[in-house]
Design a protein around this nucleic acid. Structure first.
Ligand SMILES: [Zn+2]
Ligand SMILES: [Zn+2]
Ligand SMILES: [Zn+2]
Ligand SMILES: [Zn+2]
Lengths: 154, 154
DNA sequence: AACGTAAATGTTATATTATAACATAACCAT
DNA sequence: ATGGTTATGTTATAATATAACATTTACGTT
């Protein structure tokens, strides 16, 4: 499902990126936020808030829903994590500094959510918003279907 | 927020369209389904499942959540209603026969969700899926922001 | 009409997702 | 150290959605 060479490195890099971004912006990358982000990356795919909660519970007793949701809010607001509304799940952003209007290819078979960027889509969305005199705050584009792996395409 | 000339006509037309579509497809447009669709159109914007439930309760006692969700599932599966995942709400489809890949311009101020179609977007989405050898089942595109009315644009 | 079946709805209970409200603790600038 | 701000702890509950099984309804076949 994921093809990073060494997943522990992949997690470590994401955490380091997050720390650097928070430092640069004067934000506090607290222990709770770090642990939540770590679990998001550990899953290497969309993960649900209560699954994060369960996994935290095994390490730290007394973690409650508001704590997890607050951390996810922080991470989402700062572009380190994206919420996938059609799944009620959260996924780490692979390029938090470059992220503009990306979209997800979500495989309903294996569960992978691949984040992609595409200028044609960004352009088309921008143009159509402009034509409607609509001021964009946020764009959610979730494409559900079957990925090449699950289709057996080579 | 909505600019149909006579809203009762607008609702009646939507119900008639739905009935015709169900007839043509051999589907049963039952009383529950009709009433749910009527309430969706009455709101003339995204409405939540439990708000539908509350309004039905005033007319018919003993309507319970599963009844509403089943009706919404039926209406959604048959393209008469769309779910807006970022709002956990449902909205009537304005063109259930022509509907392909549409998107919503959702005003976070007045709550309007305008359904639009745009071939450039459809194309760009199709192309990028093709490049990823991804087989599309469903596309969700929700653009949140501020509409022209709320921005005071003329 | 009576029967059999499938689809729809009723009903009870519960699962899942998310937030309100207030108390305490940690952090940081002065 | 003091006071203000931000983050977390804590308790409770709100909001969204489904599982499981019982009953009713629709409808074609006999
Ligand atoms: Zn991203
Ligand atoms: Zn897959
Ligand atoms: Zn539509
Ligand atoms: Zn508006």
């Amino acid at each position: 499902m994921h093809n990073c060479t060494t997943h522990s490195d992949c997690i470590a890099e994401a955490l380091q990126r997050a720390e650097d971004i928070c430092d640069a912006r004067g934000l506090r990358f607290t222990d709770v936020r770090r642990k939540v982000l770590e679990l998001v990356w550990q899953s290497h795919g969309p993960i649900k808030a209560y699954d994060i909660l369960d996994q935290l519970d095994q390490r730290i007793a007394s973690i409650k829903p508001p704590t997890v949701y607050r951390a996810l809010d922080f991470l989402t607001e700062n572009g380190l994590v994206h919420k996938i509304n059609s799944l009620n799940a959260f996924v780490g952003c692979g390029h938090p500094l470059k992220h503009r209007e990306c979209y997800f290819l979500i495989c309903s078979d294996c569960g992978e959510a691949k984040e992609c960027c595409n200028l044609d889509i960004v352009d088309a969305v921008a143009k159509t918003s402009w034509r409607n005199q609509f001021e964009i705050k946020n764009v959610t584009l979730e494409i559900t279907g079957e990925c090449s792996d699950c289709r057996g395409v080579h």
